[in-house]
């Protein structure tokens, strides 16, 4: 039996220990905010925070996070008012929105690690996250805004 804390809640799993965290979150725990975009750690749509680090849930197995703390987009802030989320809304970032949970989690992890990233650092840290709609200019601006106070 694998135990993992997700958004502060204890969850357990006694199925396949190799099940990717992504599918545990989406299909077993019903947390569909975390998205599937590639399954190969190539797009960042599935980004969640494990302890304090951004990870790709699609290649992280449920057993890898046993005993650890997972934060998904649903648990980032109780009212959705994390500075990154607020900045996102202020800049009107999303188009289709599908990549945005992953982008926001990546940005939140970046700011935990580096509260005042330069534009170059933002561009580098966010480059694992694809946005097919092409919202990059706004994502960059929103991360910058979040880092300077919304």
């Amino acid at each position: 039996m694998i135990k993992v804390k997700i958004n502060g809640q204890e969850q357990s799993w006694d199925g396949d220990p190799d099940l990717p965290l992504l599918w545990f979150l989406r299909d077993e725990a019903g947390l569909t905010g975390t998205k599937f975009g590639c399954g190969q750690a190539l797009c960042g749509a599935c980004t969640v925070i494990v302890d304090k680090e951004a990870v790709r849930a699609c290649i992280t197995s449920i057993s890898d996070v046993a005993g650890r703390e997972v934060t998904t987009i649903e648990g980032l802030h109780p009212n959705g008012d994390h500075p990154v989320q607020k900045a996102w809304r202020q800049v009107n970032v999303p188009q289709c929105g599908f990549c945005q949970a992953g982008q926001i989690m990546q940005a939140a992890a970046l700011l935990m690690d580096n509260p005042k990233p330069s534009h170059e650092q933002i561009r580098e840290a966010m480059s694992g996250n694809i946005c097919r709609c092409g919202c990059y200019q706004r994502i960059e601006n929103a991360v910058h805004l979040a880092s300077t106070g919304v």
Partner: peptide
């Protein structure tokens, strides 16, 4: 005017095709 789904998108609540779940649903 911001898009109507802006808040839901930034909080993971927006529902896409992949996010539909029904009782007894198979994958």
């Amino acid at each position: 005017v911001g898009i109507v789904d802006l808040h839901d998108i930034t909080t993971g609540k927006a529902r896409y095709g992949a996010d539909v779940r029904l009782p007894g649903m198979k994958y």
